[in-house]
Design a protein around this nucleic acid. Structure first.
Ligand SMILES: [Mn+2]
Ligand SMILES: [Mn+2]
Ligand SMILES: [Mn+2]
Ligand SMILES: [Mn+2]
Lengths: 218, 218
DNA sequence: AAATAAATTTAGATAAGACTAAAAATGTAT
DNA sequence: ATACATTTTTAGTCTTATCTAAATTTATTT
């Protein structure tokens, strides 16, 4: 149906579109894709011909409905495979992204649905990111950055904002994982660092850490 | 490491090499790959540069040790994924080949080993074909074509020679599957058809069928 | 409102992989 | 041994996806 490259562009535009209120810029896409602006322009023309994006020269792009649907499907595949890798093959959450980048391009509708069933229809991936349903709807979950939580309150870890391997490895090392209960013990005004309770341990974390961890409060 | 196309050529040469005693011909590869001889020549040069094949103009090719190792690895991946699809995702054996053709190109050594473990280190795929080990060794199994078995003797179905979807579907329809015990009741000289007992049923099968089913005799 | 800077597109090149048509090498039959 | 047929290679073209460098458009300053 679509080439791997086309699918990767659609995914990139989809993710960038959430932040930019207007069209997504050529440069933004180039940066996201680690490619050059001229390559992006070429691809935008092609995607526009295929009615996947609304493209006006010099004005940036937005996804059409068809483009959104296609992007959601790829993200669905990516995240389902990530769940598989962690749940069934015993990978840790910092190792799965690269492999899922490949697996997301495997084409077979039956495969996705069977995989979904095998995994018992998960709603969120190993990083807490929502898995769109077959029709492209993303499940919502009210989550708050740990950095926004007041002293004395607590919540359950449901996701990470930064999904870099180094951050995930740091969390592992300190016993932080999805489902863990975290309570804010202290908040240092000076540098916005926090003292938190996680399980029976307590630890101090920087603002950098606290602003990349999502909690679900009761 | 290698492109999907390169991998597919290596696999094709590997399979053709089992029959041809000397080098594999350009035309044979072209037919197997559903491509043109000129495209094959181009690729052979490339594979030769990469020391994956021994190529002498007009003389056909053979795989180098490196080429054999690479081909075995791809076949290993293909067959492990087929086991996964049948055992874990509940596909039937006639549906898995096309998907495995895609999955075999996913690159991650850790993934293959974890998949192998998850499947409990299978030695044969859903069609009875041997799964090479990490070092490229193919497990052997003494098997005989059903058409070679004498009246009164019996064996257990361990593989198929023809793996076409139509043949596999026919077998399913008639209750033939790997592990089933089959006993030869009669043999018709005229057309080499056979009357066989499978489970509690008995049925007549053509020579075409009998010469594409492998049994393991006791 | 120019002038300058930044972003974007165009033009032209390159590489992989495939194809067609023509040329060259090899094999077969008189 | 020569002619004919088959196989294989070469030459040249096409598509996709990328790049660099130059041109163009849009945005920002003075
Ligand atoms: Mn990911
Ligand atoms: Mn993820
Ligand atoms: Mn197969
Ligand atoms: Mn198989």
């Amino acid at each position: 149906m679509f080439s791997d490259s086309e699918e990767n562009y659609l995914k990139a535009i989809f993710h960038l579109q959430r932040f930019a209120s207007d069209g997504v810029s050529t440069n933004a896409i180039a940066e996201q894709m680690h490619t050059k602006a001229s390559s992006v322009t070429d691809m935008l023309k092609k995607l526009s011909d295929k009615k996947l994006v609304n493209y006006v020269k010099y004005q940036g792009v937005t996804l059409t409905n068809e483009g959104k649907k296609t992007a959601a499907k790829i993200i669905r595949k990516h995240r389902l495979w990530e769940v598989f890798l962690v749940e069934k093959l015993d990978f840790s959450w910092d190792e799965v992204h690269e492999i899922a980048e490949q697996l997301e391009h495997i084409e077979s509708d039956v495969l996705i649905e069977k995989l979904d069933k095998h995994l018992d229809f998960p709603k969120f991936d190993p990083h807490g990111d929502p898995i769109p349903s077959k029709d492209g709807t993303f499940p919502e979950r009210d989550k708050v950055l740990l950095s926004e939580i007041k002293v004395g309150e607590s919540g359950v870890c449901v996701g990470v904002k930064d999904t870099s391997s180094s951050f995930l490895k740091f969390l592992d090392k300190n016993g932080v994982a999805l489902g863990k209960k975290i309570k804010v013990l202290e908040h240092e005004e000076f540098d916005d660092s926090m003292r938190i309770q996680i399980g029976k341990e307590s630890m101090t974390i920087s603002h950098m850490i606290a602003s990349n961890l999502y909690l679900k409060t009761n």
